[in-house]
Design a protein around this nucleic acid. Structure first.
Lengths: 246, 246
DNA sequence: TCGAAAATCAGAACGTGTTCCAAGTTTTCC
DNA sequence: GGAAAACTTGGAACACGTTCTGATTTTCGA
């Protein structure tokens, strides 16, 4: 029987790379979809490579050939599911400070909408030893994300909301670590989902305010107050247990 | 017969708990010491429970009986090695802002002096699923650490360095997440050891400055500049790759 | 002193991520 | 068409954290 899968039925961005590469891409896609579905279904239990292979109708070796490790598979799922970039460009806001927080809430909206899914994803990322996080695709995506945020903060600086003697790079670095810490304690279970966006947003606002001009402070104070109220309300309902182990 | 178990033979802090409890404590200590030594020796390779048991001259089951999991053992090592508390009290500084950063550099001095050791420790903490981080001893130590930092920041607030309309709790929350994020990317390898203390210190200074009075800003600006210079110097020598995965 | 209780012990077992290897299958190139 | 290269496959294997079982030793209470 001739292979019936020769029409470009998926209409994806794949170029003509020969039939072998095409089959490989198709397998890759099948694995990713199986991983996504499995995480969606099983929820709390972390997905195993054996069930993943079984679900994707491939051998256990194949995900390792195509991705390299479980961590890489999960990273690819994360990358596949969340495609900002276009959405970021469509963002409109009253000023460049508001733009930053609009982007923040857009990004974390992915997490607060189905939290189970992303929590499992992040847990899988954490307990696979990270030594080899220098994947090719991963590194490129990371640079892209960083460029977006750099543009956002630089915009605020050019609009006169941030003091020019404060390096944008340093503010960005603090914001990145804030993000990582919040996602860590969220994935570990010590930060409630309802508090996640506000917690990171408050950290952003504080850091930015630490480098802000008076004009910037005027805008950021509202953010700090608003996020603070949200956090106070959440803390009243459930125990917080922030600051995981220090 | 009156209970005769009154001899304080070990002269340690253990009370008279009978010979059985004493033997248990001795075994616990032996396990902790073995874990510490093994991490010190093997360095990069994560310690395994089997070699740990072998080294401590106990069965593989015993660490699970006494601690519950590998995560708990590693947490106990971390708690055993780092005993601030007393050192914090001996801290003297020019003002309450300087006190905060003295405490910060004291705390992170543990990490930057033998980084291999603490990196291994933190990696072991990360890739054991954290569900059960609600250990009894762990929770108490966490509260104690939080109380120390709360006192430090409250001191700055009472000295008029922080605006009274900014909640100390919220600043503390941001600082805690900053810490967690930095330690995460440090343990993962994407943050250099030479940049660790400065990176967190800069984040602290920015967050505090975001809630500072003019008097506080005067002090914090120096910190921001100093840490920024340190980070710039480190970045010039090695690639930074901060903000791990977002 | 004796029996009961408690803890450890050795070892097997389960499921995990990951690697390796001998086949088999398919595509590509000459 | 045929040879060679590339890739998947199935399965075994390794080390890991964790749990369980049965036997053994040690301590405590009466």
């Amino acid at each position: 029987m001739p292979p019936k899968a020769k029409e470009p039925e998926d209409a994806s961005v794949e170029f003509d790379l020969g039939r072998r590469e095409l089959a490989k891409a198709e397998r890759r896609l099948r694995i990713l979809r199986a991983a996504r579905d499995l995480i969606r279904e099983t929820g709390d239990t972390d997905l195993s490579m054996r069930t993943l292979a079984q679900r994707a109708d491939v051998s256990l070796s194949t995900p390792y050939n195509l991705f390299g490790s479980k961590r890489a598979v999960v990273l690819a799922v994360l990358e596949d599911v969340r495609d900002f970039g276009e959405r970021f460009n469509r963002l409109k806001a009253a000023n460049s400070i508001a733009r930053i927080f609009a982007a923040h809430e857009l990004a974390f909206g992915y997490y607060t909408r189905d939290p189970e899914f992303y929590r499992t994803l992040w847990r899988a990322l954490l307990n696979t030893t990270g030594e080899d996080n220098t994947g090719l695709a991963s590194q490129e995506r990371l640079a892209r994300t960083r460029a977006i945020w750099l543009g956002l903060v630089q915009g605020a600086a050019q609009d006169g909301y941030l003091r020019p003697d404060r390096s944008v790079d340093l503010v960005l670095r603090a914001m990145g670590q804030l993000t990582g810490g919040a996602l860590l304690s969220w994935a570990m279970g010590s930060l409630a989902t309802e508090a996640l966006t506000a917690s990171v947003g408050l950290g952003y606002a504080l850091c930015l305010n630490g480098a802000a001009t008076p004009a910037g402070t005027a805008l950021l104070s509202e953010r700090i107050a608003a996020y603070g109220q949200t956090l106070a309300r959440v803390d009243r309902q459930s125990p917080d247990r922030s600051s995981e182990t220090l």
